[in-house]
Every structure is written in C-alpha cells, then in structure tokens.
C-alpha cells in the first residue's frame, strides 16, 4: 500500500483535481476544451521529455526554453524568407540539436557544471534570437502545408496530439526498453559504478543533453507552425513549466527518479491546473504561485536525484 501511494499518489492527486474541475469548472469537460488542453500540453510535454533525458543522466538543462525560442526564430525566419519549409524545419531542429550538443560538450569535455553551462547557452541563444529578429517577431501568411503540421487534424484530433504521443512513446521506449536508456539511467544513478562497468558515462551525458536540445527543436518547429509566427522569447514561459512538470513527474511511477511517464503526467497536470484556474476565474498570478508550490513540493517529496544534479554545480 505504501509503495502504491509512493508510486501513484501524485497521479491520484492530479486525478482528484481533474474530477474537481470536471464538477466545478464550467465547460472544463467539454470536448473542445479537453482537446485544447491536450494541444496546449503538447509543447510543454515535448520540452519536458527532453529535459527528462538530461536529468536522467543527472545533468540540468536550463537552456531548453531559450534553445526552443532560437530554433523557432530560425525556422520562422527561413519560412518567412520563403525557403522550403522542410529545410527551414531541419535548420531549426539542427540549431537546437547543436545547442544541446554544445551543452553536452561543455559539461563532459570542458567540465563546466551543467547548471552554469546551460545558463550560459540559454543567454547566448536568447541573444542570438534577438539578433536574428532585430527584436521583432516574424509573422506572415506562410506555406499552408507547414502550418497544417501543427494546426491540422487527423480523424478529428489535432495533429499536435499525435506529435506529442509519438515523442512520449518513442522517449519512453528508449528510456525503458533499450540499452541506451538503461546506460543513461546507470550514469545518472551511479556514475562511478557505471564507468567501472564499462558504460561510456560521458557519452551518456552528452546524449542526454543533446536529446534535450533535439526536443527543444521539435517543440520549436511545432510552435512556429501552430502560431504562424516566431518571436525571440516565445518559449520563455516553458522553462519554469517544464522544470515543474519534470519535478512533479519525479514524484510518481518511479519516485525520486526522472521518468518519461511521470514528466508527461506532470505536464498534463500543470496544463489542466492552468486551464482550470482560468475557467474558475482565478487571477493570472495564481498560476505562478501554483508553479512555485509544485516545484518546491515536488523537490521536497523526492529530492535525491535533483540533489545529485545540484551538487554537481
């Protein structure tokens, strides 16, 4: 029973909140609203999944939101300049991937603590994004195929939800069913032991941080497609939300350990709460307070993995 509560307690608490909102928040349970919540969750989920990979290897990534903004600006800028959208999307993905790899290089080769390295990368990415745009957003009537990527529907369900599901499923598979996943886990859990067992721990950290960058790139392309615009700080709010989602996820399924399923449910919980608060007519600042409570509460419940990462500073 104790183990069940430890594994599923937070998820059940989230379910209780969901039931509360279904009963008390008008229109919350409508199909349109629920699909909208899932749509809005998709960006946060994809970013959180990326951050989860970094944290599994016991490294922090505070640059994923800035890399996402930069990748969005690169993609949006190229689409705006009428470059073929697949090339633009690839460029956006490439920039974010390179940013993640740079983080990995700084952490594993130069030995810069991940907190510092990724803060630096975040600042650089933010600056470059402003440099590219000149501080103005790219907005336009872009290629319809590109826009349909994240605005379209398949069987009546927004395509964004399919992208999110694909990212979560692939990430879960990699983390839980492959050698790469278990090597990343061993690296984060006991780096010295993993190294002695022949695991390339530095490579695992490099991959973890690179995957975080890649996820930022995927979210960026979808964000630009969905909003039909690209601005230098468009993903800024996702930093705190993403961290909160992953930390919340660490309190469920595999308590104290970053895990893909937990991050997904964490992101969903945050999106549901945000949506519910709006529908209940709560003032906007309550969302910030809620995020703060989630972050502190989650770390209080399961601090061990984060402590390891924090001590690496």
């Amino acid at each position: 029973m104790k183990s069940f509560v430890a594994k599923y307690g937070t998820a059940l608490a989230g379910l209780a909140v969901l039931i509360f909102l279904v009963i008390f928040a008008r229109n919350f349970a409508s199909q349109a609203n629920l699909l909208n919540v899932l749509k809005q969750t998709s960006f946060l989920t994809i970013l959180s999944v990326g951050f989860t990979f970094a944290l599994i290897t016991s490294e922090l990534d505070l640059s994923f939101a800035s890399l996402c903004s930069l990748a969005a600006v690169v993609t949006g800028g190229l689409v705006h300049a009428e470059i073929a959208w697949p090339l633009a999307a690839l460029a956006g993905l490439g920039v974010a991937l390179a940013g993640g790899a740079l983080n990995g290089f700084l952490v594993t080769a130069i030995k810069v603590p991940s907190l510092i390295a990724t803060l630096g990368t975040a600042s650089i990415a933010g600056g470059v994004a402003f440099m590219i745009t000149g501080g103005v957003a790219f907005v336009g009537r872009w290629d319809a195929t590109f826009l349909s990527l994240a605005r379209g529907k398949l069987f009546g369900i927004p395509t964004l939800i399919f992208f999110m599901a694909a990212v979560v499923l692939i990430a879960w598979f990699v983390a839980n069913r492959t050698k790469l996943g278990v090597h990343m886990l061993a690296t984060g859990e006991a780096q010295e032991a993993a190294h002695r067992a022949g695991i390339a721990t530095r490579r695992m950290k490099l991959i973890g941080l690179t995957l975080s960058g890649l996820a930022a790139g995927i979210a960026a392309v979808l964000l630009v497609s969905n909003l039909s615009s690209a601005a230098p700080q468009m993903a800024g709010d996702f930093l705190m939300n993403g961290i909160a989602a992953v930390l919340l996820g660490m309190t469920m399924f595999q308590p104290g350990r970053p895990n893909i399923a937990g991050s997904f449910v964490g992101a969903l919980t945050i999106a549901v709460l945000a949506n519910g608060l709006v529908l209940l007519g709560a003032p906007y600042y309550l969302q910030d307070i809620m995020l703060g409570v989630i972050v502190i509460g989650s770390v209080s419940v399961s601090a061990s993995v984060l402590k390891k990462a924090a001590f690496a500073v």
């Binding site: 050698k179 278990v182 859990e189 006991a190 993993a194 002695r196 061990s304």
Partner: peptide, 24 residues
C-alpha cells in the same frame, strides 16, 4: 570488486548484475 562494490543502489538486482553488458 571494490570496497564500495560499484553498485547503483536504486537500480534493481538484475540491472546491477547486467550493468554494462545487458542482454538484448
């Protein structure tokens, strides 16, 4: 086998035994 045993305490018994040489 070093004094600290080189184990990952929060990983399972079988994951520790096969650490670095997992079966696929």
């Amino acid at each position: 086998i070093h004094q600290d045993l080189g184990l990952a305490p929060r990983m399972t018994i079988y994951q520790n035994i096969y650490m670095g040489s997992e079966l696929e």
